[in-house]
């Protein structure tokens, strides 16, 4: 066991999973530093959930190797499970148990000492102490998600695996949730979180983007736009709608995204895009300004590039 503080929380290489002859995850490498918030992005069906399940010992990889918190993911799933908190995509607590019963059940699963106090404290931290007798199924989406987080934190894990934790939760609850994630990260908990949302992705220290079961790109968040290699022009002014329609027909424009009252026009061929910008600016009436491609632009580019993940997979 390598319990050194510098050793990565997760270190996997060549991770592969085959379902019915289809490679759902294909040769996946990843290294998650301790204490980091690591964002895991990709379209639906790209293999994010399968990868996370392999890391916490729920699924046996068909190929590849790795360690999670220093334990071998093939042989030491039991040790990993005791030290990892896993929050599933769907609400996976018992709807017909009360809030307290759910937390108590989870605490028992981990064989926690001083269980009653821990559960009571978790309830107080949640702000649900006076509703502890309510059935979990009657909670709203945001509360369910906070309860889930509390349940997978009950054994104070060193690593949190969150599988699309904020799907279907309102923006306010999402913000609160991320505040909580950052608080945990500051305490030294490593967080691996998969998400669809760009505004969540930009909060991560590291990013990995996965599509078709393969990792397309990974690295520190600030390096991602450079890796994607986008040139972006910001367009402001009148009649952006008709302009957008015209630009869609231009082969050099890879992507057009609306940001408030501006259009971000991006492409991978800098020279061609610059020529196009000069031409359109001359036509007016809009104002074209070149800017550094942001993380958002990079994500939209990645997401649209692999939008038809399901369809393409069958054809490929």
């Amino acid at each position: 066991m390598t319990e050194g503080q510098d050793a990565p929380a997760i270190e996997v290489s060549g991770l592969t999973k085959v379902f019915d002859g289809r490679k759902v995850v294909d040769g996946f490498d990843m290294s998650v530093p301790r204490g980091a918030i690591y964002g895991f992005l990709g379209p639906n069906g790209s293999g994010k959930t399968t990868t996370i399940r392999m890391m916490c010992g729920l699924l046996t990889p068909d190929g590849g190797s790795g360690t999670c918190l220093g334990y071998d993911i093939h042989r030491e799933a039991g040790e990993i499970k005791r030290r990892v908190g896993y929050m599933t995509q769907r609400f996976s607590l018992y709807e017909d148990l009360t809030i307290r019963e759910n937390l108590d059940f989870m605490a028992r699963m981990y064989g926690l000492p001083h269980r009653k106090e821990k559960v009571s404290r978790a309830l107080e931290d949640l702000g649900l102490a006076n509703r502890s007798g309510q059935l979990a199924g009657t909670l709203s989406g945001g509360w369910k998600q906070r309860l889930s987080l509390a349940a997978c934190m009950i054994h104070t894990p060193q690593l949190l695996l969150l599988d699309e934790p904020t799907a279907g939760v309102d923006p306010k609850a999402r913000r609160d949730f991320w505040d909580e994630i950052r608080r945990l990260s500051a305490k030294g908990v490593t967080v691996l979180v998969s998400t669809h949302y760009m505004d969540e992705a930009v909060q991560c220290d590291f990013i990995a983007y996965i599509a078709y079961g393969k990792k397309l790109i990974s690295g520190p968040s600030r390096d991602i736009p450079g890796m994607v290699g986008l040139t972006t022009w910001r367009v402001t002014g009148e009649a952006l709608g008709p302009l957008e329609a015209k630009l869609r027909a231009e082969p050099d424009v890879a992507q057009i995204a609306r940001f408030g009252d501006a259009l971000h026009v991006s492409g991978t061929d800098k020279a061609a895009l610059d020529r196009l910008a000069t031409r359109y600016e001359a036509e007016g009436p809009q104002k074209w300004v070149e800017r550094e491609a942001g993380l958002e632009d990079a994500f939209i580019y990645l997401m649209t590039g692999s939008e038809d993940n399901f369809g393409l997979k069958g054809a490929a």
């Binding site: 729920l58 499970k81 990892v84 896993y86 996976s92 607590l93 699963m109 981990y110």
Partner: peptide, 13 residues
């Protein structure tokens, strides 16, 4: 079906 099994087997049970 309800997904609770996933959370259950993610524990050391």
């Amino acid at each position: 079906e309800k997904g609770t099994m996933e959370a259950l087997i993610a524990t050391p049970v």
